[in-house]
Design a protein around this nucleic acid. Structure first.
Lengths: 200, 200
DNA sequence: TGTACATCAGTGAACGCGCGTTCACTGATGTAC
DNA sequence: TGTACATCAGTGAACGCGCGTTCACTGATGTAC
């Protein structure tokens, strides 16, 4: 079993993109410790120095990967919302499901993007992608801010809850068998949170 | 400036402990990437092979460090609770403050212990320490479970919220200056969450 | 349509580094008698 | 109190590994005229 998952390429302008995808694969398979410029190059069937040309260094590659991750993340939430009934509560439930679904589908990537790793914070792709995700959250939260409320507080309440739930779920891979292997579902947790859309 | 922060030691039975503390220092100074068996040994003024004797390997050292972390974490919450008025809401607020205070005081350690890193899950010290932290949370949450509620759901609601808030706060070191550099305070977030002690 | 030239995208060798792990060893400490 | 012995705690050399980064290079592609 050799390691050439991707056939050798020649100048078709897609290498940068491929390296990002390979990086995500590497994260999935080996976690954050398995991500390196050299490993990405090898997996992409390219010289070990090639990634440096596109990303300058490991931090640059990581930033590009996290930018991609935030786009996938935003898309997961957007898709979930698009399928939901057009009421504030249904949309809230949907964004939470989308958040959690992304985490479950990309555990290592999710942990990586929220690992506190230092990135090129000024990178435009990165900024655009993370803003996109934040905008979704912000939009869905807005209807729950009453007249006297700071909308940022409501956002942060919702964000904290769904992020905490998802993050803890990713950390606790293994739970005691006695109660089944799952946390109480997110929907049940949400039901306990008595915030109300401001129109009611 | 040499690197002998701790003078060379000779057989006083405290090396294991010192290595754990040095490991925590290393995390604080350089993050997860700065933690290694060799770096701990060097910092403790001891041969590079010494840590292996006590921890077997890097995973063992990491497990010991996280166990220590969970004890500090539990203590932070316990202290905060001990100083609070003896009402369910005050105790809830106190545990949340203790949770956040620990994260702020030990950012890198907090990120490390919740990084999803694989540890020796069966290690007794580790199990005891994490159970201790969980027990605090569980005890404080109990009064908020009404007659029809699953107590685990209430625990998870509270845990998710405070964990999410703290974790996001650690990730977003830098916020846009325009609004000041701080998130809306945790107390405000908690106020929006209308759970009630079951006696009321 | 052909040619000269610049730039682009990737190569491959080389550098030095820190790492985890193994292993034979040693000298100090503790125990049995 | 002295002696023999076992175990403990740490040493230091050695192993091979993968890593990031630099650098002179090359051959393909694109552009100007």
């Amino acid at each position: 079993m050799t390691d050439k998952a991707i056939p050798p390429r020649k100048r078709d302008g897609t290498l940068r993109d491929s390296l990002i995808e390979v990086g995500i694969t590497l994260l999935r398979e080996k976690g954050a410790d398995g991500l390196s410029l050299r490993a990405c190059a090898a997996r992409a069937g390219v010289s070990h120095a090639a990634p440096t040309y596109h990303f300058k260094n490991l931090k640059g590659l990581s930033t590009a990967i996290v930018a991609r991750a935030f786009n996938l993340f935003a898309r997961s939430m957007e898709t979930s919302i698009a399928d939901a009934p057009d009421t504030p509560r249904a949309r809230l439930a949907a964004i939470c499901e989308g958040y959690l679904a992304f985490a479950k589908a990309h555990r290592e990537l999710f942990l990586f993007m929220f690992s506190g790793l230092e990135l090129n914070g000024d990178d435009p792709e990165f900024k655009a992608a993370s803003s996109r995700a934040y905008a979704v959250l912000s939009e869905i939260s807005a209807p729950f801010a009453g007249p006297g409320d700071d909308p940022e507080e409501i956002e942060l309440l919702i964000w904290s809850l769904v992020h905490g739930y998802s993050h803890l779920a990713m950390i606790n891979k293994k739970r005691p068998r006695s109660k089944g292997n799952d946390l109480p579902p997110l929907a049940n947790i949400l039901r306990h949170m008595d915030i109300k859309p401001s129109g009611t």
